[in-house]
Design a protein around this nucleic acid. Structure first.
Length: 322
DNA sequence: AAAGACCCCAACCGCTCTACC
DNA sequence: CGGTAGAGCGGTTGGGGTCTT
C-alpha cells in the first residue's frame, strides 16, 4: 500500500546530475516553464524523476540562486529567524534572497549549530546552556531536575562532544548567567581571540537579551516582550521531552498579549498558544480558517506588533508575513 | 604516502498539503 | 465529498573532498 510513486523507479537515473542533464533541463524550462514536473523529464529527454528535476531546478539551476558563502548578515538572519520559527527552513529561506531551504538547512546543520554550541548556546532553544540548567533547577525539585538535566544535555550531546573532542572552548564566564548578566562586553571580551564577527554579533544579541532579564527564572518572563525585546525567542525549554510543553501557565504566570503568548516554536514543530496561554495542537483546530491562514496571522502578529520582537524590523523582511 | 576520520552539500525519501476532477 | 496527482516541506543519506594521524 502507500502512495503511488511519482515515477517508475526502475527506468529513472539517480544520483549526481551531469552538465548535459543540467543543460537539457535548463533549456527546456527556459522554453516551456515549470508547469507539470512529471512531464518535464519526458519532454526534455531526461531519464529522471519529475521530482528529481524539480529539486535540481529549485535548489541548483534556478538563475536567481546564490551559490557562494553565507554572509554574516545572512547568518544572523538565519539564527534570529530560527529562534522564532524553528526548523521551518522554507520560511527562513524566504527571507534570504537567492537561498533555498536546502541551503539554509545545510548551513544550519553544518555550521551555525556548531557556532551556537561553541558559544554555549543551545541551538534548539537559543538559550545559554547555563540558563537551561538554571531553569531545570528552579522549575523542578530533585530528583526530576537531575533526570531532566541529563536528558537536556543529551539533546545537544553531539555538539558538546564535538566541542570536547575537536575545539576546546573557553567557557570562562559563559556558563554563569550572573557573569553574563551585567556586562555583555566582558562576556565578549572573554573570548576576544575569536575573530568571527557573526559569532560576536550573535553573542551580543544573546547577552543583551539576558542583560535585560533582571533575574533568573522564574522571575524573568519570556512571554513579556519588554523583558526580551532584542532577542526574544520561544522559551520552550525541553522541546524533545515528551509531555513537557511550555506555557506561561506552567510557570504560574498569567499570559499577557505579547507575541510569545501566541506562538511558541521550537525544533521542527511550531505550537500556537491561544489567548489564555493554552497550546493549540499543532495549529490544528476547528474553525473556518485554514491552518496556513492562522499561522500567517500568528506570524504577522509577531512581525507587526507594536513592540519590536527582535532587532529585525518588519520592514527589513524580504517577504513580510502578511 | 596512505588510511581513516571528518565535513559538506546535493540529492533522495516519505509525509503532508492543496488543487482539481 | 472523496480520490488522486502535483507540489512543497523537513529529515536523512551518501559520496566526494579535505583533514588528521
Amino acid at each position: 500500500m502507500g502512495r503511488i510513486p511519482c515515477c517508475e523507479k526502475d527506468n529513472v537515473k539517480r544520483g549526481q546530475w551531469t552538465p548535459e542533464e543540467d543543460n537539457k533541463l535548463s533549456s527546456y524550462i527556459a522554453q516551456h516553464g515549470t508547469r507539470n514536473w512529471r512531464l518535464i523529464p519526458k519532454n526534455a529527454g531526461l531519464q529522471r524523476c519529475g521530482k528529481s528535476c524539480r529539486l535540481r531546478w529549485t535548489n541548483y539551476l534556478r538563475p536567481d540562486l546564490k551559490h557562494g558563502q553565507f554572509s554574516d548578515s545572512e547568518e544572523q538572519t538565519i539564527v534570529k529567524l530560527h529562534s522564532v520559527f524553528g526548523n521551518r527552513w522554507s520560511l527562513i529561506a524566504a527571507q534570504l534572497p537567492g537561498r533555498t531551504d536546502n541551503d539554509v538547512k545545510n548551513h544550519w546543520n553544518t555550521k551555525l549549530k556548531k557556532k551556537l554550541s561553541g558559544m554555549g548556546i543551545d541551538p534548539v532553544t537559543h538559550k545559554p546552556f547555563s540558563h537551561l540548567m538554571a531553569e531545570i533547577a528552579t522549575t523542578l525539585a530533585p530528583p526530576q531536575a537531575a533526570h531532566l538535566a541529563e536528558a537536556a544535555l543529551g539533546c545537544f550531546k553531539d555538539e558538546v562532544l564535538h566541542l570536547l573532542t575537536r575545539k576546546p572552548i573557553n567557557f570562562q564566564g559563559q556558563h554563569s548567567a550572573a557573569a553574563l548578566g551585567n556586562n555583555f562586553t566582558d562576556y565578549i571580551n572573554c573570548k576576544s581571540e575569536e575573530k568571527d564577527t557573526t559569532v560576536e554579533k550573535i553573542k551580543f544579541d544573546q547577552s543583551k537579551a539576558i542583560q535585560q532579564e533582571p533575574d533568573m527564572m522564574p522571575a524573568n518572563k519570556p512571554w513579556d516582550s519588554t523583558a526580551s525585546a532584542s532577542f526574544a525567542m520561544p522559551y520552550n525549554v525541553f522541546p524533545t521531552m515528551p509531555g513537557f510543553q511550555f506555557s506561561p501557565a506552567s510557570f504560574g504566570n498569567k499570559a499577557d498579549a505579547s507575541s510569545w503568548s501566541q506562538s511558541v516554536c521550537s525544533g521542527s514543530t511550531c505550537t500556537a498558544m491561544d489567548q489564555h496561554g493554552q497550546p493549540h495542537e499543532k495549529l490544528e483546530e476547528n474553525g473556518d480558517d485554514s491552518e496556513a491562514t492562522k499561522e500567517i496571522r500568528n506570524l504577522s502578529n509577531i512581525f507587526n506588533s507594536d513592540c519590536v520582537v527582535w532587532d529585525l524590523p518588519a520592514d527589513d523582511l524580504i517577504n513580510p508575513m502578511v
